[in-house]
Design a protein around this nucleic acid. Structure first.
Length: 346
DNA sequence: AAATCGGGGAT
DNA sequence: ATCCCAGATTT
């Protein structure tokens, strides 16, 4: 394997093209921590204002820990994801109560604070304490899967573990380079190796990037596999009385809201019970299953035809539905698969 | 409308 | 240890 010197390239790129003017590019772990939390799911430009206001009101961990939660939430108002603020407050109190007010210095200890996982803990350890700890957020996953051509959904344990291993193997030898290296990873992922339309022509990794070489930047990282659309089974009763069919109005919301449709049952026994309540009828052999695909699930319909010879007088029409002449039914608003079923009868 | 995202909570 | 979600934005 040829020597790609990923870290060296990244650090050099960061020094010449990265950002050096962000207010949280300091070694105070509290400031780094605050920025990392605010930057989760929120863009830099939005964070800048909130960050300044938050720090003005809570300049250190002690003041944050001592504040009422409502004051913290007020300063978070508009940022969204408010559990971040609750965790921040709780973590400040934990630092006060369990770490003697001193922010912990190892990734392991940092990770015990609420709202801080492995990647965020590593970012703080790297920026504030210059420790050789690898981060692996969404940006980094994108950069690594592309540059190293790693297939598989990064949310999958196996793939994620591999990415963590890779991220650790790429760390610069000199811990003094960690802030520039970590910032470089974040900046590269955010500004060059973007999700769509990455700026490969200006990327410092372009000549060694597997995704570029193979024309696969659009395919990597591998998308989250669509979980097999759930399947629902239903039995639709096609109750016939001469040339009339029983239809029911569906509730106004939900699937096929407000449309006329056939009554549905869990099984033939339930359908038979329905029949017996209404007259002298018999189930006929079911028709072959019918599949109907929605965006979010597949519906397997078992058509259950039945004949009702004599009706009980009070059930010709009821709250739930009524008998329809087939021709009229087909002209009414019917769900597509129901219409297909009824068309077989004419 | 769908995909995305670190961490937390549930299992 | 692993699966899945909450909550909000971006594409």
């Amino acid at each position: 394997m040829f020597e790609f010197r990923f870290a060296d390239r990244l650090i050099a790129w960061q020094r010449s093209h990265g950002r050096h003017d962000l207010p949280w590019q300091v070694s105070d772990p509290y400031r780094v921590w605050l920025s990392e939390i605010m930057l989760q799911q929120t863009q830099v430009t939005t964070v800048l204002g909130y960050y300044a206001r938050f720090l003005a009101r809570f300049p250190d961990i002690a003041s944050l820990a001592a504040a009422p939660l409502d004051d913290v939430l007020a300063l978070w108002s508009g940022l969204g994801y408010y559990t971040r603020a609750r965790n921040l407050h709780k973590a400040a109190q934990k630092v006060r109560d369990e770490f003697d007010g001193v922010f912990p210095t190892t990734r392991e200890d940092i990770e015990t604070l609420p709202g801080i996982g492995r990647s965020t803990a590593a970012a703080i350890a790297s920026f504030a304490f210059g420790q050789r700890e690898a981060i692996l957020d969404g940006n980094v996953k994108r950069v690594l899967t592309r540059v190293y051509g790693i297939d598989g959904f990064p949310g999958e344990k196996k793939v994620e573990n591999r990415l963590w291993d890779l991220a650790e193997s790429l760390l610069p030898a000199d811990a003094g380079d960690m802030p520039a290296y970590t910032q470089g990873l974040m900046d590269l992922g955010a500004t060059v190796c973007s999700r769509s339309k990455p700026a490969c022509t200006i990327c410092p990794m372009v000549d060694g990037c597997v995704a570029v070489r193979d024309g696969r930047t659009a395919e990597l990282p591998t998308k989250k596999p669509k979980k097999a659309t759930p399947t629902r089974d239903t039995l639709m009763l096609i109750a016939l009385n001469d040339d009339r069919v029983w239809l029911e109005r569906r509730p106004p919301t939900g699937i096929w809201g407000g449309l006329l449709s056939l009554p549905e049952f869990a099984d033939s026994a339930a359908a038979e019970a329905w029949l017996e309540e209404r007259g002298d009828g018999e189930l006929l052999p079911t028709w072959p299953e019918l599949e109907h695909v929605f965006t979010h699930y597949r519906l397997i319909i078992t058509p259950q035809p039945a004949r009702l010879a004599s009706l009980r007088g009070n059930t010709v029409r009821e709250e739930s539905g009524q008998w329809w002449e087939l021709e009229a039914a087909l002209d009414a608003g019917l769900p597509a698969p129901v219409k297909r079923l009824l068309q077989r009868l004419v």
